[in-house]
Amino acid sequence: MASSPLAYYPGCSGLGTSMEYDRSTRAVCEALGIPLKDIPDWSCCGSTPAHTVDHALSTALSARNLIQAETIGLSDIATPCPSCLKNLKTAMARWQDPKIGPAAEKLLGKSLQERHRVRSVLQVLYEELGPEALAAKVSRPLAGLKVVPYYGCLMTRPKDLMDFDDEEYPVSMDRLLEAAGAEVLPFPLKVECCGASMGIPLNKAVTRLSGKILELAASLGADAVAVACPLCQMNLDLRQGQVEKANHAIYKLPVFYYTQLLGLALGLPERDLGLSKLNVNPEPALALIRQSRPKPAAETAATTEDAA
């Protein structure tokens, strides 16, 4: 495992709606020995509003965070949020665009110095740590938990930009959750749109699209959904009541961040994982996990030794 820290970009939602994602990500990375160092004085990546009105502005907002990472001498950046990730990656690409790069540079009064490497925390866990190494560190396997992995639209797409996993049928989260001992169900809608930010202007788009995802997850017999995106989580979890109402259905499917599930498998205290922040009651799913016996201590000790 890389000992030099990764520059960590939590993203705005990490301080608000997805506080539990941020918290569980930090806890899991710490437990797995992946040092994270916050980008000092980071700011909003511009999110959807910026790039829909002005590419130079959006590029400048995102690039500023990369420049801030340079101030602590780091160019390997990780963020949990796929939307932030897309903006940061796009900014690097657009910086080279003669129509946009100079304009963004003018807005910032600073220049982007290095070729940054920006990845999602999911990609870091999958590619640098890997499922096998993760499995070795699992102390409380999620045995008995049937989970469907849901990646959302952005984690792997557009393919050329994101450059990670299969763009239509990604498996990285599947493999990590399997390593954590969960039963991962094949989920055909894993990159379908949840409705994204349409929840406010056109609520029925979200209730229809998220409804499809929850409907299929429930029909497959899943106990929980695992997600990697704050907005997806909000639509599937916070709006699950709206979705149920619109579709005349009851799902009661807890929607975890995959980092929360990994944290549980690593035996981290539940309070460090922000489970209380979830809207749909996770208790039934958690009860399933609690039934699972911890790995024999000797085995755990041995693996810890190996790791050392």
């Binding site: 055909p188 299929l216 029909s219």
Partner: peptide, 17 residues
């Protein structure tokens, strides 16, 4: 024979019930 011909590719098949 009334076969419905749809000009386009299929993007996804998934089970529903």
């Amino acid at each position: 024979y009334g076969a419905q011909y749809v000009r386009g590719r299929v993007a996804l098949i998934y089970p529903k019930g």
